[in-house]
Amino acid sequence: MSANKESILKKLADAVINFDEAAAMAAVNEAISGQVDPVEAITRGLTAGIKEVGDKFGRGEIPLPFLMLAAQVMEKAMNELLKYVPEDKRPEPLGVMVLGTVEGDIHNLGTNIVTAVFTAAGFKVYNIGVDQPVENFIKKAEEVNADIIGASALMSNTLQQQKFLGEALKKRGLRDKYIYMVGGGAFPGEEWCRECGADDYATDVMIALEKAKNLIAERKKRKAKK
């Protein structure tokens, strides 16, 4: 049974690494019928696969489209496995993120990449799409009890929306409730991050992921101390 389980877990991981949806779903079915714990199938199978893909991408060994495909396969397989897991037993995501492109801006390549990479890394990402007013970020964050709000702007003339979001969070007394991260192709750097009142920024998805993980970890530590 154990050897069989290990074999199934490897099939799940390989399916993600090879972004092979058919193989992934076949491995999922095998896991279910083989009575492999679905949470273990996710954490030791799918997640192991996506971690390897993410590491390769971070080292510049594979291009972005392969990462996106792997993340899509992972998500589909994971959603299928989660059907067999009671709500209270589901693995906690690393963090919950609300992500979008600010009002006036319809670029979405960057946010789609972040969604894929963060999801693959174990975050639950609510991508609210493009041209989103400040209100929509906050509304969604409140609705899903987010840890992080991420706002992207790719045009120099929509950047100020990132500052407006920071101001709105502060005005409503929500600034400390959320980790606020900013980024995008036109991002001017650290000083702008400070002006926006954000916790951090990134213009590279892997750096964003590391920063997000660190910010979440620091937050957990602070909460634990209290």
Binding site: G60, P63, L64, P65, L109, G110, I113, G185, D204, V205
Partner: peptide, 8 residues
């Protein structure tokens, strides 16, 4: 074109 390795 964008660089498929970085998206930039």
């Amino acid at each position: 074109s964008l660089d498929p390795m970085t998206g930039r």
